[in-house]
Design a protein around this nucleic acid. Structure first.
Lengths: 287, 287
DNA sequence: AAGTGGTCTAGACCACCGG
DNA sequence: CGGTGGTCTAGACCACTTT
């Protein structure tokens, strides 16, 4: 989905008389730029090779370029962006399209806009706006060499609680899977999931190779939302043994119900994490 | 900010030949509606008395009306909305404005739109898109009669960790406040916060009457984002005594750093919650 | 083929903020 | 005062889904 970033940016145009660190993405005016040389024009083309024939929307192309420019440090925090009218003109776009791109970045928390002031790149404290957390992806990103052991993969009648959460008749059949997730050769979580039967067709090998959510999306299921409850309790003797901890050790618990676009419950998860080796990190945007 | 909802809606227009439950917000066509009677027209006016002279944007007025109509059950889950062109025309608006209103509701998770299909009210599983959680507000909403006891309110040099989080010089001065939060006459959390000095001027009475975030916003500070880390551990003897639990009981921990629009750290919180009496609930939209 | 939302354009007026 | 983002308009073409 996401294309590899290969753009270079121009973090300083050296406009005389500005003690501000404004960044201009525009090509130089035709009056001062001799034809055939155009270094800045080339920078512009490198930066933003908009493809109007691409199925990727223009505003999204712009937003992605700016996003990777920000994350790569080419647009450091505090950098002031030109106003939308100038940027739109520079890129040969209408103002609403440019605006849509910038709004996308505002929603992602990457830039801040203030009326009468301007647009600035935000301090890089903000990270992931909390996607549907996949422990597997989290660990892989942290390079913790995660591994998964499938301990159960079965079909059977659901618990009353699970049936209710999935809006199934009492005793309806569900696919149950229990996985033990480890990182750096130590167990880190016991993951228990329930799905309505027939929704997903997976093998233990699939589950050991990729995260559950990746498989769900791969099956063409559009996830829409999820509610999570995060709590804590102490480990029972069995849990402690499984997770290589002492009985009474603190465990993080998460119960999650995920819904698709139609509002139908797709998945119930009941997970326990070793608190000494795992914690949830999340970033909120306070809009 | 939010105005009280007083609108009524028309959940069934009874179009013959439709087994679908489409909802029309539009006034009746002038051809079939005798003048002077206009029940549906009155419904429309009740539903959406757009005020073009109001400082509240039109799209926001629409979105709020629809939002309260959804939450009040006047637009039940699964209800199909008319397409944006018709809705815009019915309300005397341009399509982009109508679209902006609907996009707002999509971002809030209240409706789902699909190209070629239409727009439907989402199943009401989704709730708060996780604002900056205020335990105080949470409890008040749940009618748990919360109370706050201020146990410390002092100014002094910051811990190295806190100073780093707030981007202060080592040993810089911070306002430290420690609160014990109870609900239903039992302690539920110990809240420790650190703020740069001079940012906020509060008394113990203020803190026992309202939540910290309310006070911060009241001081004109624009919160932008926050990062939280949620973990768990077992209670020490002192903590157990303070929180009316047994030593070794499971505690939920949260560390939070909040930032303002300029990216400056505004507040650090280090809180512990009694796991047997509190858990975090949050809703994610998977966009 | 008809209906839907997704995208894009080229303007306009306004509220807010700084100097 | 000039510059900024916030809002709004009245069109247009397209991609997608269903009939």
């Amino acid at each position: 989905m996401r294309r590899s970033p290969d753009e270079v940016c121009c973090p300083d145009n050296g406009s005389p008389g500005w003690h501000d660190d404004r960044v201009t993405v525009s090509a130089p005016g035709p009056a001062t730029s001799p034809p055939g040389e155009g270094v800045s024009r080339q920078q512009l083309l490198d930066l933003l090779d908009l493809d109007r024939s691409s199925p990727i929307p223009l505003y999204f192309q712009i937003a992605q370029h700016l996003e990777s420019a920000i994350e790569s440090g080419a647009l450091p925090p505090g950098t002031r962006l030109d106003n939308e009218v100038q940027l739109a003109e520079s890129l040969g776009l209408s103002r609403p399209t440019m605006r849509q791109a910038m709004q996308y970045l505002v929603d992602k928390g990457l830039i801040v806009r203030r009326r009468g002031i301007g647009t600035r790149v935000v301090q890089p404290k903000v990270r992931r706006p909390l996607e549907l957390t996949s422990l597997y992806d989290d660990l892989k990103r942290a390079d913790q060499s995660p591994s998964t052991q499938v301990r159960e993969l079965s079909v059977g009648p659901a618990d009353p609680d699970v049936a209710r959460a999935l809006a199934l008749p009492d005793g309806g059949e569900v696919l149950t899977l229990v996985r033990l997730r480890s990182a750096a050769d130590r167990p880190i979580a016991k993951l228990t999931n329930h799905l309505p039967v027939g929704l997903l067709d997976v093998t233990a090998e699939d589950l050991e190779r990729s995260g559950l959510y990746q498989l769900i999306r791969g099956a063409g299921i559009q996830l829409h939302s999820a509610t999570q409850v995060i709590g804590a309790r102490t480990a029972s003797r069995e849990e402690a043994e499984l997770l290589d901890e002492d009985p009474g050790a603190a465990l993080l618990t998460m119960e999650r119900v995920a819904y698709d676009d139609h509002g139908a419950a797709v998945e119930v998860g009941r997970h326990v994490y070793v608190a000494s080796r795992y914690s949830f990190e999340l970033t909120l945007l306070t809009n």
